[in-house]
Design a protein around this nucleic acid. Structure first.
Lengths: 190, 190, 190, 190
DNA sequence: GATGAATGAGAATTCATTCAT
DNA sequence: AATGAATGAATTCTCATTCAT
């Protein structure tokens, strides 16, 4: 059901693909999506041709980076949902999403896309996460840990916005914590 | 009060400048900063040459747009600060800043930059606003309307992030209100 | 009915456009359509940007070259049709078309397109010529100068093929004449 | 008779070579020479590496395809020359050459080249055919079936041009026949 | 020998900025 | 001052060919 029989990929090819993905994640995150493909290839130690063999389009590369992020988020979220109380699961997951989404704004916006459009491959991952978030939200609301008037739409907006906030605070941990405090407090019922 | 002796600028030139600024604001806000200068000039009904006579660089144009926004915000903020109670002034101003900052994210981010780097002309406007915000924050904290542990840094992050949230909700007024509720609630002392 | 009000075009711009068209015609004809746009621009003494300002696509440039050729052919054909006897008009026109169509084969094929597909701008010119050819053919058949079993389709094939023949003979005038003799003889009723 | 000591070639290698040649002929003929080598290899069920092992250059592959065509033509021509009257042999051979040469024009032109430049391996095949054609032409002229003023040069041009004509008519058999009629009639003495 | 991943030199096209008109 | 044509560096993507597996 999930498409093409993926052949194991030669060792070196797999290495290159991984390196490209890693470099692209780093570069897109810190310097935005405007960075030339050539530069990414170079940073990964391969030729442009190789980059384009693995990702037929710059957009495809961007998409792959996003999917990986989303998958990480989904996995973490699933783990939290299974292991923690509804309230802790919800707030823990909120942090995970926010932390995984930080990076140069322009790029973070893409995550935004998860809540709206997004290209085919993203759709799936994004759907999964949305479903998880909806569950967590409902659970937390059930036990009275989160105000009942919020929907998935608002939650996503809050997540994306909080990511932006964190991007602004950089590594100032205490400040980040204070802002999380503000948002989390606001999320709780009065 | 500020540097260069500005020649009065011929009437038509002033008109062109104003039109360009208006169009650029609209275009950058709705379609992002990637829009070609040519297109902006065209939409303003002038040639590219004219655009570049008024703004020596695309970046300069962007900067001018930002300054105008910041000035609007500063004026509104000043008015609110003068007319309202500290608490109302603070929260009213928060809304003003957020509303004025919305638009295509990529661009909103730029505003964000105002809190960090920014080119010379922005610095000034941004300083003014920061000073106003600092005052409003202090006032609101004094009367116990806002938690005392927040600093200007956090406030700016919260403003930018809330703008992002609003961008995501678009024109869904009730949802926007619920999100404002969350943030404002979080800002108040427990 | 024939589209946009064309502004007179500045003197230098017109000169550049003409030069580009001339160079492109020459280059495409002698070296085929694979020649890089950059080279054409260079040969015309302008930057690539200028080429693309005048012709938004390489294909557009090719098309423009073709249209000009077709227009020349149409004009010549019209003149001959008006001034000469049906038979002379037909055979004279046949020579004109063949001569104007010669050049590096790959490109000549394009003329072929005139008889089949072709992009929008070509369509019109090609239609005109086809109509003219159909008239000339009918006229020549009426006076018994051309075998009556031939249609426009065959005529076009014969024209294109004869062009190819001439391309092969280059400037060997007597040989060209002998081949024209063969074709013309074949065209006449037995 | 010809140069290098050719190793017998392993059975599978021979099969691959044959498959590549067949596919290349098909592909070049129907879609032109611009088709990527990778695609040809894929269609033949081998990797690009294999293609390049058999044909060190794309041009070499093209050349091989041409040689095969020329050899087919030469064989057919020889058969006709041996079995038929001079006139029938000449005209029959004309048809064979034309039919074998049709296909996507761009490619047909290459065959044309056989009459002019061409790389080493082509030279030989092309020479053979030219000699055959010269003989057939002379024979047909001797018996008064073809105008005496035509030389080999003109004959080749006529062959190539007629191929182009046929390419234009596609599979419209009656039209093809009418065009053959024109050319054959033209070839006969008045 | 076969494979297909890697390479990198182009090629077409865009767009900020300059400058002749 | 205004105009818009010209410029050319930069960017994305392709494809013949090489080479490690």
């Amino acid at each position: 059901m999930s498409g093409a029989q993926e052949r194991p990929l030669r060792a070196d090819a797999a290495r290159n693909r991984a390196k490209l993905l890693a470099v692209a994640t780093e570069v897109f995150t810190t310097r935005g999506v405007g960075v030339p493909t050539e530069e990414i290839a170079q940073a990964a130690g391969v030729g442009v041709g190789t980059l384009f063999r693995h990702f037929p389009t710059k957009e495809a590369l961007l998409s792959a980076v996003m999917v990986r992020r989303l998958e990480t988020i989904a996995a973490e979220t699933a783990r939290l949902a299974a292991e923690a109380e509804p309230a802790d699961a919800f707030f823990g997951c909120f942090r995970v999403v926010v932390d995984q989404s930080s990076g140069k704004s322009e790029f973070t916006q893409a995550l935004a896309a998860a809540g709206v459009d997004a290209h085919a491959p993203l759709q799936e991952s994004s759907m999964v996460i949305q479903a998880q978030l909806a569950d967590l939200l409902a659970g937390a609301q059930q036990v009275g840990a989160v105000r009942p008037d919020l929907g998935l739409l608002e939650l996503i907006a809050l997540l994306v916005g909080t990511s932006t906030m964190m991007d602004h605070l950089g590594t100032d941990a205490p400040a980040r914590e204070r802002v999380f405090d503000v948002v989390f407090d606001g999320l709780r019922p009065r």
